[in-house]
Design a protein around this nucleic acid. Structure first.
Lengths: 119, 119
DNA sequence: ACGATATTTCGAGGAGAGTCGAAATGCCGA
DNA sequence: TCGGCATTTCGACTCTCCTCGAAATATCGT
């Protein structure tokens, strides 16, 4: 991931609606969610949803697949992975460790602590 | 860090100039850099620099302190820490590990590979 | 083939971001 | 106190983002 890709991904996530949308897809996992369902949950007209979904798609943060007459969107964990990696390596200090809360081995084992993923 | 703060931080970082500015401050470390120096390095007029620097400051990503007649800006690692933590916990899947490249113990040792921090 | 459903594309409008020169503010040295 | 340097504030402009209704496209069931 280069800095231009990072800016695109950051920009895609830097909006209330889109961050909520992305988190919804992350929670849902690989199954993803149909555009209509997302629009309804977010309470916005279909055309507005398309705008945001495309923004995230262009940034490579979500995937799109067709299921009958529905379009299913799902979070692309690999891409998010890349973004977090970029931020950690380029924006968290050279001697690392300064900013590595995501790197606590304990956290990996426990994972998905109920209290933290409030939605 | 709540989602509104995350959006503000992401938005602050979601711009070529500001991402470059922030990375410059990260490289520089706690000593920080004077506004004038940053403006010169980035090749932009002082008033434009102020605009971007304030954006990052409002988002809590950088600190400001006065040194004589200069204003020194420095990266706030705690804030960046918070952002990366937020993204890891809320946008990387509940069973974590899915998106934890920042968690390779080896990476911590190597860190800041010269080739990566190009611009 | 036809009607219904799901979603996108198009077009227009308003709101906010980004840019920069000129003027104002804050701080230093003499 | 006065001139000069470092930086911010102000004002105006352009450009892109966001929003949403209406029309177009794609797929399914009959």
């Amino acid at each position: 991931m280069d800095s231009s890709q990072a800016v695109q991904a950051l920009s895609a996530l830097a909006h209330d609606t889109r961050l909520a949308l992305f988190r919804m897809l992350v929670e849902r996992g690989p199954d993803g969610l149909a555009a209509g369902v997302i629009a309804e949950r977010l309470g916005m007209p279909p055309s507005s949803l398309t705008f945001h979904v495309q923004h995230l798609h262009r940034a490579g943060l979500i995937t799109q697949r067709r299921l009958g007459r529905q379009l299913i969107y799902a979070a692309d964990f690999t891409a998010m992975n890349g973004l977090v990696g970029y931020l950690t390596e380029n924006c968290c200090g050279q001697d690392s460790a300064i900013c590595a809360p995501a790197c606590r081995p304990e956290a990996a084992g426990v994972a998905a602590r109920p209290g933290q993923r409030s939605a």
